[in-house]
Amino acid sequence: MEIKISVNVNGKDYVREVEPRTLLVHFLRDTLRLTGTHIGCDTSSCGACTIHVDGIAVKSCTMLAVQADGSSITTIEGLAQGAELHPLQEGFKECHGLQCGFCTPGMIMTAADLLAKNPCPSESEIRHGLEGNFCRCTGYHNIVKAVQYAAEKMGNEVSA
């Protein structure tokens, strides 16, 4: 049995038939071939699969694709505005907030949720805000800096 779902992903509408047990992350990766969203665990712990569903950060490995029917989804592939990187993407590059890059999409999507809720987070608020995402490469030091970079840049843009 397959169920028809309609989703908007990164501004584009898709209508697809999915098996009810298909996880949203598999739908994105295998059906839509948006492979920037990664899978790092099977216990909803690592955050590598984090995307935005209707504007909030969720772990796409913990949602069924059918549950996303009618939703608007943003993945890492949809974060930049054309050629212009999102300030978080820029921050991660400028501050060396990534090494192997595997956790990076999820980390950036979670950080985007954080900055949407709290545009000027303290270091401790950033660390707390990223507690749902593992990074094994960076020791988080430069990730914190990357988020600070983005917060500053986005703040400047608002005030400018």
Partner: peptide
């Protein structure tokens, strides 16, 4: 949990 858990 964490942010994503609390969101969902």
């Amino acid at each position: 949990g964490d942010v994503q858990v609390r969101n969902k």
